[in-house]
Simulated assay, not measured.
Amino acid sequence: MQEPPAAKLTSRESDVLRLLALGLSNRLIARRLDISEKTAKNHLSSIYLKIGATDRTQAALYARKLGLIGPRRNATSTPASVPASAPASIPTSVPESPRVPEGDASPTGPTLTTREQGVLRLLALGLSNRLIARRLGISEKTVKNHLSSIYLKIGATHRTQAAIYAQCVGIAS
């Protein structure tokens, strides 16, 4: 993924990108910003083009790298990247890290198998299930099973959350 300067994004595109990185769907992004779902999709298309992303996961990782979202932000303070004109409904902090089920808790987080770490690393690079399967020499169904297990262990509900988790714990490098 290319990394052109973030200055190319309009303030509205930054808002859309921030909400996308928080894991919101196009519908919820549109509701939060009081725009139509079609407009949200158009903003996302423009964002992908400007930052060189091909999917939501890459865009979310890019937003994190820019500091549009980040771990342990204070919910009462507004980060510098939030424009003063931003609607009050735009979250300025990231929800807490996904919760680890009590039985799997360890000082470094949940225990992922070597294969699960490999799947998570490739997911964080933006690869589809099909490409992950090809790269690892396993079936697509096996990739889906590994992802289900990963999501359960790290408390994620979708790919973007898992990719952000992988970056936070250093698996995505």
Rank of each mutant, 00 (worst) to 15 (best):
residue 150 I to S: 07
residue 34 D to V: 00
residue 118 G to N: 15
residue 101 P to N: 14
residue 11 S to H: 09
residue 52 G to R: 08
residue 141 K to P: 05
residue 40 A to C: 03
residue 130 R to W: 00
residue 126 G to S: 09
residue 53 A to C: 14
residue 59 A to R: 05
residue 37 E to V: 06
residue 87 P to D: 10
residue 140 E to Y: 04
residue 54 T to R: 11
residue 25 S to L: 04
residue 148 S to A: 10
residue 91 P to R: 02
residue 54 T to Y: 01
residue 42 N to G: 07
residue 45 S to C: 06
residue 60 A to T: 04
residue 107 P to F: 09
residue 121 R to F: 10
residue 36 S to L: 08
residue 127 L to W: 07
residue 170 G to V: 09
residue 38 K to P: 00
residue 35 I to M: 13
residue 5 P to G: 11
residue 61 L to M: 12
residue 123 L to D: 06
residue 43 H to D: 02
residue 38 K to I: 05
residue 21 A to P: 05
residue 91 P to F: 01
residue 57 T to H: 00
residue 42 N to L: 12
residue 68 L to E: 02
residue 18 R to K: 10
residue 85 S to M: 06
residue 162 A to C: 07
residue 163 A to S: 15
residue 65 K to T: 14
residue 3 E to N: 13
residue 99 R to S: 14
residue 70 G to Q: 06
residue 113 T to Y: 09
residue 52 G to L: 10
residue 46 S to C: 05
residue 79 P to W: 00
residue 11 S to T: 13
residue 85 S to W: 02
residue 162 A to V: 11
residue 118 G to K: 15
residue 141 K to I: 15
residue 150 I to K: 07
residue 73 R to Q: 02
residue 15 D to V: 01
residue 129 N to D: 15
residue 13 E to F: 02
residue 68 L to I: 00
residue 29 I to T: 05
residue 55 D to G: 14
residue 149 S to W: 06
residue 42 N to I: 09
residue 154 I to A: 09
residue 161 Q to C: 01
residue 2 Q to E: 12
residue 48 Y to T: 02
residue 141 K to D: 15
residue 168 C to N: 09
residue 38 K to Q: 11
residue 158 H to W: 00
